[in-house]
Computed example of a mutant assay.
Amino acid sequence: MTAIYRSERGAGKVRQRYAELLTEWPVPAEHRRVPTREGETFVLVSGPEDAPPLVLLHGSGANTSMWRGDIGSWATHFRTYAVDIVGEPGASAPSRPPLASDRLALWLDDVLESLGLEDISIVAASLGGWVALDYAIRRPGRITRLALLCPGGIGAQTMGWLPKALFLRLFGHRGVRRTAAIVTGLDAPRYQAALDDVVLTFTEFKPRTERLPVFPDDALRTLAMPTLVIVGARDVMLDSAATAERVRRCVPQATVHVLPDVGHAILGQTDTVANFLLDEQ
């Protein structure tokens, strides 16, 4: 597990904070650990057993706890499966399958098979959005609805923020905190608790360094399911304008929202996502 952390002590701090956040999960939940070819995968299951299945995939440097503000709404209508992606700071195995391969799709095959799921809806963010898109392209017909928040793989990754981030790191904890605020866009006072968690994680965690492969137009055109894409116009990590333009051009049935004053971390979209998922249910 420490391979993805800077130290065993740091790994313990992140795991402890994750356990604390899971105690704030606002609805009853079942903790499952399912076997996959990439190692054990942690899944938090909520909602009525007979409700339609909804899989949640978090972003890079995050875990299932990111959905705790949304789950009270979504688990009313769906059987939700919040999955910790392998190789990220959650409770799944530290394996990091290469993105330029089919191994994450095969991993998700294993997760869904272990959970007994076939046709699913997905809500996913950032790296999780890339995983969801990769799966939807490779497994046409298995995803009934797709809601993506700041998804990777459509607009290019941008690196203009990196020189400033490297400079700010010279100023210790204050610099790291300022860097996190720039990267996430969580610079408003109401987001300070969330920013604290980001700072803790990225002080101790070693994120993936490989670039997210960008899906070609022909691959995006195969997406036939109802799709919702929400991006922040202030996103410094992904080209949100290009994401919106390519989705509108290649996935004409998609609904696209560009939030003008939002960065990479997209919060407060619970109702928008729920309304999309429930349309024609």
Rank of each mutant, 00 (worst) to 15 (best):
I4N: 12
S7A: 02
S7W: 13
S7G: 04
R9W: 07
R9D: 13
R9P: 00
V14R: 01
Q16C: 03
R17G: 03
Y18P: 02
Y18Q: 01
Y18G: 04
A19L: 14
A19T: 13
L21R: 15
L21T: 06
V27P: 06
V27Q: 08
R33D: 13
V34C: 07
V34G: 12
P35A: 13
T36D: 11
E38H: 07
G39F: 01
G39A: 05
L44F: 01
S46T: 14
S46L: 06
P48L: 06
P52L: 01
L54I: 11
L56K: 00
S60R: 14
D70W: 07
D70Y: 11
S73Y: 00
A82T: 02
I85E: 01
I85G: 02
E88Y: 01
A91F: 07
S95C: 07
R96N: 02
P98N: 08
L99K: 13
L99E: 08
L104R: 12
D109P: 06
D110P: 02
E113Q: 12
G116W: 04
E118G: 03
E118C: 00
D119S: 12
D119I: 03
S121F: 06
I122H: 00
A125T: 08
A125L: 05
S126Y: 01
G129M: 15
W130F: 15
A136F: 11
R138C: 12
R139E: 08
R142V: 10
T144Y: 00
T144F: 00
L146C: 12
G152V: 14
A156E: 13
Q157I: 06
T158Y: 01
T158M: 11
M159L: 02
M159Q: 12
G160S: 08
L162G: 02
K164C: 02
K164W: 07
A165R: 07
L168S: 05
L168I: 05
R174K: 13
V176F: 09
V176D: 06
A180D: 04
I182Q: 12
T184V: 10
L186W: 07
P189M: 11
A193T: 14
A193Y: 04
L195K: 04
D197W: 12
F205R: 02
P207A: 13
E210L: 01
E210D: 15
P216E: 10
D218I: 10
R221V: 07
A224P: 02
P226L: 03
V229K: 03
I230P: 00
V231G: 08
V231I: 08
G232N: 06
A233C: 02
S240L: 06
A241Q: 14
A244W: 15
R246F: 09
C250R: 03
V251I: 15
P252L: 09
Q253Y: 12
A254Y: 04
V256G: 14
H257L: 09
P260Y: 09
D261F: 01
V262P: 00
A265M: 09
T270N: 06
T270S: 11
T270Y: 02
D271W: 01
D271T: 15
T272D: 05
A274K: 11
L277E: 09
D279K: 14
Q281F: 02
Q281G: 10
